[in-house]
């Protein structure tokens, strides 16, 4: 069961990395970045997963008794933060992409940096 999670998150990361490396369009690159982020989050949570584990939330007395079957909460805490970082990166990158479109009037990554193109 954990093999499926780890392998799928690894493949997501590789696909995302491939996307970042090869795509020319900026929005595509940012989408690929998000795919890597999702892949990493899945990978982290799958590190904490144990087979037939139960959610680490105490609902009643007997859930306290079988604490050792609970899934590891720490990767989930990390992933909570990392999702928001992913959101932050995407928001900032998208704003820059829009500004890039205005100044370079093309959203391909190898638009030349020199003076042509109307800049605001």
């Amino acid at each position: 069961m954990t093999q499926v999670f780890i392998l799928s998150s690894l493949s997501l990361m590789f696909i995302g990395l491939y996307g970042v490396l090869t795509r020319k369009n900026l929005l595509k690159i940012i989408i690929a970045l998000n795919i890597i982020e999702t892949g990493i989050n899945l990978l982290l949570v799958s590190f904490g997963y144990i087979d037939h584990g139960i959610t680490p939330i105490l609902t009643s007395q007997e859930s306290i008794l079988n604490l050792n079957k609970m899934v590891d909460p720490v990767p989930q805490a990390i992933v909570l933060t990392s999702i928001v970082i992913g959101l932050g990166t995407t928001a900032f990158a998208l704003a820059l992409a829009i500004r890039y479109k205005i100044t370079h009037n093309s959203i391909s990554i190898n638009a030349s940096e020199e003076e042509e193109g109307r800049g605001i």
Partner: peptide, 17 residues
């Protein structure tokens, strides 16, 4: 984490034309 969100959204508002 809250600061990260604060900064990125601030940057978003700052940079967007």
């Amino acid at each position: 984490e809250v600061i990260v969100l604060f900064i990125t959204i601030l940057g978003f508002g700052f940079v967007i034309p």
